[in-house]
Structures are given as C-alpha cells and as structure tokens.
Design a protein around this nucleic acid. Sequence first.
DNA 1: TCGTTAAATTAGGTATACCTAATATTAATA
DNA 2: TATTAATATTAGGTATACCTAATTTAACGA
Lengths: 231, 231
Amino acid sequence: MPQVGARPALSRSVEDYLKAIYRLALQASPVATSDIAQALDLSAPSVSGMVKRLSEQGLLEHVPYKGVELTDRGRRAALGMLRRHRILETYLVEKLGFTWDSVHPEAERLEHAASESLIERMALTLGNPAFDPHGDPIPQADGSVAEVESMPLTEIPPNSTVEILRVVTSEPKRLRYLAEFGLTPGSILYLVDRQPFHGPVTVRVGRKDRVLGHEMAALVLCRPTDGDQIA
Amino acid sequence: MPQVGARPALSRSVEDYLKAIYRLALQASPVATSDIAQALDLSAPSVSGMVKRLSEQGLLEHVPYKGVELTDRGRRAALGMLRRHRILETYLVEKLGFTWDSVHPEAERLEHAASESLIERMALTLGNPAFDPHGDPIPQADGSVAEVESMPLTEIPPNSTVEILRVVTSEPKRLRYLAEFGLTPGSILYLVDRQPFHGPVTVRVGRKDRVLGHEMAALVLCRPTDGDQIA
DNA sequence: TCGTTAAATTAGGTATACCTAATATTAATA
DNA sequence: TATTAATATTAGGTATACCTAATTTAACGA
C-alpha cells in the first residue's frame, strides 16, 4: 500500500539524474552523457550505465552515442523535483529565516525526502508563489512553468533602468557578493556604463555606483522598466 | 570541507539502527539482535552484520550471543535523531497544519535529510518545545531528556481526575481513535471505572463517558491532578 | 577515404545493505 | 548431564550505484 502523499518511488540518484538532464536539455537537446557526468560529478561509465537503466524504465530515450531526451514521464518527474526544490528554498527563506545563499544544499537534501503533501502545504502557506528567492520560476503542480522574458545585465544598453528578475547561480560566495550590492530579484537599478569586449558593468543601486565583472553581471537577468528614472 | 550545519555522515540505515537500539534499550539492556530485527523489520543475519560494522565504528558495544549497548557516541547520535524527529513532528503539526496521526512517516524521512541548523531554526520558531504533539519528550541540544512521572490509564484508581501527558503509539488508526474521544496530551479526564483483569476502562471527557479497551488505555499516560473536580 | 581524436560504451571490480540457508552457541528441560 | 529449542552468527548470494581500464563508435581534417 503506497504511502499517503508519497510519489512514485525513485531513488535519490535517479531523481538527481532527471533533474540534471532537465536542466541540461534547456541548453541543448539531446543531452550528451558526458555533460550529465560533469553536472553530477560522476564518471562517464557510471552515467552510461544509469542512462541505460533509466531508458529501460521509460524515463528517458537514449540513442547510443547520440544522447538522451526525457520522456513525458521523465519530464514530469523532473519538474516535480524542481517544484519541490524551489518551494523548499522559498519556504526556508520566507518562513525560517535562511539566507538565499545558504538554502540550496538544504533543499537539495530535503527535496528527496519531502512528501507531495508537505510541499503542497508549504506552497499554500507561502501563497503558491510563482518564483523562488533567486527568481527561478516554480513549476506548478500541473507541470506548467512561467516563462519570463529577461536579459542579462551584460546586454542592457547604458543609461537604462531595469528591474532584477532572476539571479542564475547557486554559489554562496557569488550570491552573498550580489546581495551585498543590493542586487536581488525585485530590486531596481540603473545601468550607468558597460565596457565592450566582456568588460565590467557599472550599475547604480540606490545612491551607490558598483562595478561588476562581466561574468558576474551575466548572472543577473533583468527586464527594462517603463520609465528611465533613477531610484 | 564539511557542510555548514551538517552532522557526522551516518547512512540512513545506521541512523535507523541507532534510533531503534536506543528505544529498545529503554525497555531492556543489553538489546537482543532479534529485537532489533523485529523493530526494523529486517532479517536476523542483516542485523548481525550491521551490528558488527557499528561496533567496529565505535557506535555500540557488542558481546556476541548476548546483545548490544550504545556507546556514548552512539547514544549521542541516537538522541540527535530523536530530537530531529520530534522537532519535525511538532513543527509539522504546529506550523503546517498536519494532524498528529499523519506526521510520523513524514518526520521519519525528513529526520535523515534535515541539517542541524534547520532543526535548530524550527525549534527556535516553536519556542524550544520540551514535548512533541504525542507528549514525547524532545531531547535538548545538549543531550538531556526531560523525565516525567506518569502512569498508564490502566493503573489509575477509579474516581480520579488526571491530565493526559503522553500517548505512546504512532499508529494513525489508534491516534485518530483517541483524538476523536478528546484523548490528547493536555486534556483532563475523569476515570469513572476500571474493570479488573485487563478489562475496559470508562473515562469521562467533558460531558461524555467513553469506554476504552485495556490495550488502548495502556497507551495513555497520565498524571493525577491535585483536585478531583470533573472538568 | 583514411586515420586520428574525442566521446561513449562495455568489461570487470568495489562498497553497502539487504536476503536465505546452514551452522554455531546458549539456555532450558528431561 | 545430555538433549533440544531458541537465538545468533557465518556463509554465500542479490541489487544498486559507483569506480577504472579497455574497447568501440563517430566525426573531422589531411
């Protein structure tokens, strides 16, 4: 008899594979096994073996020497994991006072253990949020994912005012660095200047001007605001 | 580099063994391997094997053919698990609206995944509770456990008023049954009558008289209240 | 088109944690 | 004390998920 609130029993490993493949498929599809190996820090043969088992289970389709794609079942499972992860991160930050740079590993472990009903109760308590603290969209229970148009700071023309929508890193050091500058989702900033050829970007947050390296600025996704007023 | 808030990495299985041995040792010590096997629903040889590995790791002392006892290290780990479990149960009930009969399996899975710092944040949010929703004492971070004198309903003399302190089962059906009667920790009841030789017990809760089978009544631990007034 | 290289797979092996069947030890009884 | 029954352990085997080393396949440039 299956547990109340339980989900199809996939092992931790399998859940991690599906999540990684989903993410990688957003960049390029089919996904190369070597990319999976790199993402999960595993050897290539380990991934080959697991990929074979997962396709036998109907979670993904594998064309040997070509790559893998998630089946509908595999994608649903991956989206479920992503939902769990992002609801957990949001809950930890909103309700338990964790900082946005510290929640990733905690959510990474809890997402395998939390039941569907726990996640839905957390979501309800949070008012069914559509985005997590990093601005990542939270897949809804029906599998839909909000798509938001955004541009990295490195592509915004100088002299524009933008709202930060999303920060695409889970590295604590970088998250702390950005938060120190006030560069978190929802905040408004004015792009003062941008050096060509992958040079630094100067932004004004509040009254302060900050210089961001190109790599850092590329992680900050924004949307231009209507006016051009300085906050 | 160990994780922030992480604990010594013990596997799920090991954590379950230590928890079970701790509980069993409260009844009788040393603990028989067959009792561990029964508690964890494993074969006797599986337990023999694991017991050997755990004693090699210094988590318990094993005298072959006699039984096992936790070492200090083993006891600390077990108390840690118990704390995690009970904080989690309390949090799920108090903050997320779970019912007291449904939290056990959820906590059983989360206790292996939650970091020390998550548990301490939950405890703080709850005001560092000393007891969980079933009245079980929550081991404190320093390893101390509140001891409360209590008697099962089956040993209370008729015509006395008692407060329920604890209900010692995790079976949902029984918990729901008792909750229906208003028999939860903190509630006051009047023991109307008690049949000898393991017969049923009649209690009055509010205005209603309820008859409880002996087995059920034995799960309800109480403390006599000063007066003898009927609530 | 042939050879070289990069990528992927297969072969074979390890650790954990379980199992059943067989054996050993202890404790209770005749 | 010898036998028996209960308890525990050892022996040997399975599944999962990882590893390294060896091999195969595909793709690309000479």
